[in-house]
Design a protein around this nucleic acid. Structure first.
Lengths: 358, 358
DNA sequence: ACTGATAATGCGAACGTTCGCACGAACGTT
DNA sequence: AACGTTCGTGCGAACGTTCGCATTATCAGT
């Protein structure tokens, strides 16, 4: 363990008081050019860096941001985690901050306790939340405590806090419109339960697009369940058993896992995905492009979201932007079109393109 | 932002000096039962928690561990990241520590600078490294600086430091032996370049297993390249074009992405994976089980590794276990057998099982 | 009744910064 | 020549802990 260098040592070596060294380093005072040079030289020679702990004790700030997230089950990896984290780390580091990551606890009491601990011990200056739901206990707690935070995702409309969210409705609308353009008319949806805020936002785009095309989807087309492979498989199987007249020729799915399950079900039923039945996903899971056929999916601008969340939080912490109205900032996803959503009629099959957001 | 509660306020309220409160809270002194009760009551009423920054300034420790990792490219997610991080967060929190995560910089100078910054400002007490390679600059730097760290992965044999690694050789040996047991004799390998330490460890198992079966693989069977879908596809295509007499009937791959590429190439060549050609992967990427056919793969005990790394580092930091010999701790992976590695001869096709490590 | 141990609590200092104010010297102004 | 200004630097205090030692009160033993 290397020896620690303090202000006092730099001061001794350059022959001034340690307070003067501090001021020179922070550019808070003008001293004789010669003195300044001596100080900087001592700093260089000793390789001095201000002790972060002492600095934050004095400043009453930790220059640290807390972040915790719900882990994905092992058989269903979070496709955006790595990018999201790195984008935040970069944005934070550029402004002298770091992220303190802490474990997720499924028990609500225990979870709030984690946040409280980090707040009360002054270990972090603010939090980033993700996966926000209706009446999210973390949101309610932090609002009540008036502790700074930003969120990836919205909650109840009446809860006002700084947040950024993907316009999931727009994403699903792009997917649905794309299928309509391919000639599909009977388009089903594999969705989450109605208590899912994210799910409801996304479904709006489905309804909007169908409505604009003069189509009213019957209840049977809306399959709701857990967003996993198994549910996708079951739901698609049910859809394929509907009577000919209302059997869908396309399915939009609220995430890629359901889509992969649906693809499998279609194939097991002896049909060809992309020819007889079109399927779209959501998230653009990395491996989705390597499936057979490659999966059409909606991609979120994850890096941008991470960067902007951090910028938003730091602006609040540094009070450059204190009491603005906290509207949710919506960012637009893009549709990545691959073979799973082509049809015989369309002619294109192996073509691959990206339909950008407006 | 809630008001901060300090020792002094607790002291005022319970009528003793603040130093006494500190000692009582830390159990360092015995006081009259009645006084103690008054103090604890004040602590409860004010919801006092010791300021972490002040505590670490005094203790000259940050109770924080630094971790940074090389991000996976967006089209190729890291399958174990989420679990690995959560396992470390949990293990650390239980002992009063947290992880400070910082960005990865591909430029070596810049990267070392990140580590140096966190060390010299005393923001962290130690580091966790992952993805360690031969002559890893981080390892060399931290060893030279004598700064505490533990690593997931080995480096050069002569560099001694506390580390845990998966016995990748054992994993590949399990895969190869499994294929041999299915009746395969011509088994190719999709590997990384020879400067990959992890790759070389894994390949040892391949050679060991083949050698034990009296087989000497010709050079053509060993395909080396980047561990990605595209390379897997190309390499498998080349292998299938070998003359009949030496054309492999099975391929072990050093990761799942290459395996998925190989599967695709085999299918595009009009052959059936699991019937005419067997393929195995490595990492047990979540979506691997949903592929057609589901992929046989080698699974690492990620949670255990994360927990043990943190325990190892904290023991070193708390000097319970200072100067032991730093042997690399090897943990055993397991082979998850699915349909991609069955053959016609074997009869079993849809069976799914886990072959545990010894 | 005096000594010496033990128990209960207080006090000062220190960890390494940053910040506000004070102080002396040099200088120009009246 | 006396007086304000400006410049360059030093000093003391504070952030909230913990730690060692000092101090007082309590009590048993001679």
């Amino acid at each position: 363990m290397p020896r620690r260098v303090t202000l006092k040592e730099v001061a001794t070596r350059s022959g001034v008081s340690y307070q003067t060294v501090s001021k020179v380093i922070n550019g808070q005072v003008r001293v004789a050019a010669e003195t300044e040079e001596r100080i900087w030289q001592a700093v260089r020679e000793l390789n001095y860096r201000p002790n972060y702990t002492a600095r934050s004790l004095r400043a009453q700030r930790s220059f640290t941001i807390g972040y915790s997230w719900r882990p994905s089950p092992p058989e269903q990896a979070n496709p955006i985690l790595d990018t999201f984290l790195q984008s935040m780390f970069h944005a934070a580091e550029q402004r002298g901050y770091y992220l303190l990551c802490f474990p997720y606890h499924s028990d609500t009491q225990r979870q709030i306790e984690s946040y409280r601990e980090l707040m009360d011990t002054r270990r972090v200056d603010g939090f980033v939340l993700s996966g926000v739901e209706y009446n999210d206990p973390r949101v309610l707690f932090l609002l009540e405590q008036k502790f700074p935070f930003v969120a990836f995702g919205r909650s109840n409309p009446e809860l006002r806090f700084p947040s950024i969210d993907v316009d999931g409705g727009h994403g699903l609308r792009l997917a649905t419109e794309h299928l309509l353009a391919q000639g599909h008319r009977r388009i089903a949806a594999l969705a989450w339960p109605e208590d899912s805020r994210v799910g409801n936002n996304r479904m709006e785009g489905y309804f909007t697009a169908l409505h604009a095309a003069g189509i009213t989807p019957p209840a049977e087309w809306i399959q709701r369940g857990e967003g996993r492979f198994a549910f996708g498989y079951q739901a698609a199987t049910r859809l394929l058993q509907l009577p000919e007249s209302m059997r869908p020729t396309a399915m939009v799915c609220l995430n890629d896992y359901m889509a992969v399950g649906a693809v499998k079900a279609v194939q097991d039923a002896g049909l060809m995905v992309g020819r007889q039945i079109a399927v779209t996903g959501f998230d653009d899971t990395p491996i989705a492009q390597y499936l057979t056929p490659p999966l059409t999916s909606v991609r979120q601008p994850v890096w941008e979201i991470g960067e902007r969340l951090i910028a938003l939080l730091l602006n609040i912490l540094e009070a450059k932007n204190l009491a603005t109205d906290y509207e949710t900032i919506l960012v637009q996803p893009e549709l990545v079109i691959r073979a799973s959503s082509q049809t015989l009629e369309s002619g294109v099959f192996a073509r691959k393109e990206v339909m950008s957001n407006p």
